[in-house]
Amino acid sequence: MESIIKNIIDRYKRIRSMRQLKQVYGGNYAFVGIGDHSINNLYPVLNYLHVPLKYICCKSKDKIPLIEAAYPNVCATISLADILHDDDIKGVFVSASPQSHFAIASEVIKSGKALFIEKPPCQSEDELLQLISMRKEANFPQVTVGLQKRNAPVIRILKKKLQKCRGNMSYNLKYLTGAYPEGDALLDLFIHPLDYVTFLFGKAEVKFAEWVKHHTLMLVLKHEKATGILELSTGYSWHDAKESMTVNTSNGIFEMNQMDSLIYKDKQTMFMGVPLEKVYPLKMVEVHLFDRNDFVPTIHNNQIVTQGYFDTIKGFVDAVEKRKTSSEQSLEAIIDTYKLIESIRSIQNKK
């Protein structure tokens, strides 16, 4: 019996290994940018998926020999034009400075090549609409925006659960980090929670917005069937950064913590408006819809997956290779996100 079980286990491991080795893509790709974020979060996914990189583009000539030493099969260059004129390149990944994204994205889209553009893809709603227009003129090449939290498992699960909930709901969201002197916190950081509440609850109207000491943004947002209170801040600490959300529905409460866990709690029974839990003890029922396992070091428990990077990049390459398509992270899909950001900016400017 033991030998039978061992053979089954060995066969399962062999099949799993073979499946991973067969994960091969046919096209060649280029990457624009080789900063800390790209090296830690994006390049590892490309390596795991065996996505063939032909070029890495950077700004400094001094980096070229270093890049080619670190990536022996890659051609390092400072010329985006060389990449766009190479017919072998099917898609281009762009993760450079946020201020440069619009200009680079414009050139890639006009070339007709597929584009993966890190957030933010541009600086304003007007620039976003320009990119959409360029894509139409270029015969609709694949464009994926790297707002990866839409692909985080907790967000995917929560969206499916909320679609089954009836009536109005409310939520409370906290996104708390340390200081961010190097850029625009609203567009570079807060775009993440603003995007996924738009993804979860739909178009949002700003009912209240106020900055506290230029580092904390307090918001009240009204969606069609939800109202949210948000605290978005760079006034805390990077060593203890927090991202959490509680959603109160008619049936129960969802609690999300750090993209690592999602818990559902049933609401207690009431009799004639009286909560029975105040009369006698009732057992609280909790359902763990998702928990990242910190003990088992597999790909599915890696934060690259739980934060959504893995599925976002894989979805882009699959779409380029005509394996699977999705429009949930297209330029058109984030119009409401940019409208929300513009509304917050307009209120801020009036004050």
Rank of each mutant, 00 (worst) to 15 (best):
Thr77Ser: 13
Ile299His: 03
Ile83His: 04
Ala69Leu: 09
Lys267Trp: 15
Thr144Asp: 07
Tyr309Gln: 01
Asp240Tyr: 02
Val108Leu: 15
Glu342Ser: 13
Met259Ser: 12
Thr246Trp: 13
Met256Thr: 03
Thr249Trp: 04
Val145Phe: 03
Met256Leu: 06
Val92Asn: 09
Lys283Asn: 12
Val74Glu: 12
Thr325Val: 12
Asn41Met: 05
Pro98Ala: 01
Gly228Gln: 03
Gly235Phe: 06
Ala138Gln: 07
Lys203Cys: 02
Lys225His: 03
Gly252Phe: 11
Lys54Pro: 01
Met218Gln: 07
Tyr55Met: 08
Thr325Asn: 07
Ser237Asn: 10
Ala138Leu: 05
Val279His: 02
Asp88Pro: 00
Ala333Ser: 15
Pro297Val: 08
Ile334His: 13
Asp126Gln: 15
Ile15Met: 12
Val317Thr: 00
Ile89Asp: 09
His239Asp: 10
Tyr196Glu: 06
Leu262Ile: 01
Ser244Lys: 15
Ile344His: 05
Ile109Gly: 14
Ile89Glu: 06
Asp195Ile: 11
Ala81Trp: 03
Val108Asp: 10
Tyr196Lys: 02
Asp336Leu: 10
Lys13Gln: 09
His37Trp: 08
Lys54Ser: 10
Pro120Thr: 15
Arg166Phe: 04
Leu80Asn: 00
Thr312Ala: 02
Cys122Glu: 01
Phe271Ile: 15
Tyr175Gly: 05
Ser106Leu: 07
Gln20Asp: 07
Asp266Glu: 15
Pro72Ala: 09
Pro275Glu: 00
Ile304Ser: 08
Tyr236Cys: 05
Pro72Ser: 13
Leu331Cys: 04
Trp238Val: 03
Met259Asp: 11
Ile117Gly: 09
Gln23Thr: 12
Ile263Arg: 15
Leu262Ser: 01
Glu127Thr: 10
Cys122Leu: 10
Arg292Asn: 04
Leu232Phe: 03
Ala70Trp: 04
Glu182Lys: 14
Tyr48Asn: 06
Leu187Thr: 07
Leu200Thr: 01
Asn41Thr: 12
Gln307Leu: 03
Thr246Arg: 15
Thr337Tyr: 11
Leu230Lys: 00
Ala81Leu: 06
Ala152Gln: 02
Pro297Trp: 01
Thr198Pro: 00
Lys61Phe: 04
